[in-house]
Design a protein around this nucleic acid. Structure first.
Lengths: 212, 212
DNA sequence: CTAACGTTTGTCCAATCGGTCAAAAATGCG
DNA sequence: CGCATTTTTGACCGATTGGACAAACGTTAG
């Protein structure tokens, strides 16, 4: 049931630190090569320690991955959790999009790791998707539906709306190589996220139809 | 230069057939597990033949992958190639979005294989992205920019517009497991693509701002 | 100092990997 | 038929993989 470290009684200071160090290295390697493509040796080297030493802190490659992806999902869903009925609907959605785009910019490894797992059929996190993600999305979809009924935003499908926000924002993390290559060295630099933010705001709020 | 089969002189009927059979099996396996995650044994079993026999038709795992992804890119870019100045701009974009969504529906394996490769930094197709994809996108972005200047569609960033079309449509192939799980057994069935089509059309044309 | 406990590593192992090879089986052709 | 060519396979190989293990090393409390 618990896929954790030696943990006889309490967790040592060293254990806490080294586990964090390992998880960071593992995130590097897993997000770049996927679960099967990553090797324990690679992770150990990235963490600056020997393979058996790494396996002293995590009993298996699977344990590292699980720990990583469960923690990641919480971070990843946080912005959606914050979506609520306090401000005005348009503003709420606008800042949700902005926050998701910031996450793609600041935590691209997490995004890629998650994408990799879903791409391969989510064999290790199916239960999290059905048990955590779906209920949360259903709840927020209901909230959004309320805004539509009240005429605060245009009537459309709230689930697909959420999908499209995920897709467009995470695209800048998951397909980063392609985005950069297509934009070229000038436009593909640091400014690409501000350009994306401006574009996405217009897309979601106004669409492409010319005014007037 | 040519990473092909035994090919002494011409390609036999059997060679042509078996190579197609193998490529189909390889697409199954590669799209599910990525390049490193896939094994020749898996592909051989999926193709219903022995491993050495498979290696008689393709000299290596890499050769299968390369053949597959080069062919795939052509299919994948075809809809964008068709984008031109003949019809009215709004209609052109509308049908581009529709075609891309149909491809996500009909060729999800291709989409996933491509996504997998990009996710991992496109180590094997960097040259195709820079040599083929970028020029095509630049060309079409210029076309779209012309439409904006002429007031046919709203002024915005054509490159990011293309990204957002890719992201939203391919999402339904790449994140299929998640989409289905979130929509549930009722809404996640065959109708999800029609729902998506309706939603995306509204998003891209009108945005979320309520009318009036 | 020393015993107990936490940490680190060198060495090893069975399983799996991509790929080779020679020989057998099937096929095409005069 | 008989011969050449193409197709198929079992056996094998070196390299890499995830992981086990015991011995060594470090740290700390009494």
């Amino acid at each position: 049931m618990d896929a954790e470290a030696p943990v006889r009684r309490r967790r040592t200071r060293i254990q806490t630190e080294k586990r964090e160090l390992i998880l960071d290295a593992a995130l590097d390697v897993f997000s770049q090569h996927g679960f099967r493509g990553a090797t324990i040796d690679q992770i150990a080297e990235a963490a600056g320690m020997s393979k058996p030493n790494l396996l002293y802190y995590f009993r298996s490659k699977e344990a590292m991955f699980t720990t990583l992806i469960e923690r990641l999902l919480q971070t990843w869903l946080a912005p959606l959790r914050e979506l609520d009925d306090i401000g005005d609907p348009i503003g709420e959605l606008r800042s949700y999009i902005r926050r998701k785009l910031e996450m793609a910019r600041d935590y691209p490894r997490e995004s890629r790791l998650f994408a990799n797992e879903i791409l391969q059929g989510a064999p290790r996190i199916q239960h999290l998707i059905e048990g955590e993600l779906k209920p949360l999305v259903d709840e927020k979809a209901a909230l959004i539906k309320g805004w539509m009924k009240a005429g605060k935003i245009a009537k459309t499908d709230p689930w697909h709306l959420i999908f499209s926000i995920w897709a467009t924002t995470q695209h800048y993390a998951d397909f980063d190589v392609q985005v950069r290559a297509v934009l070229g060295p000038d436009r593909g630099g640091d400014g690409r996220f501000e350009d994306a933010a401006r574009y996405l705001e217009q897309l979601f709020l106004e669409g492409l139809r010319p005014k007037g």
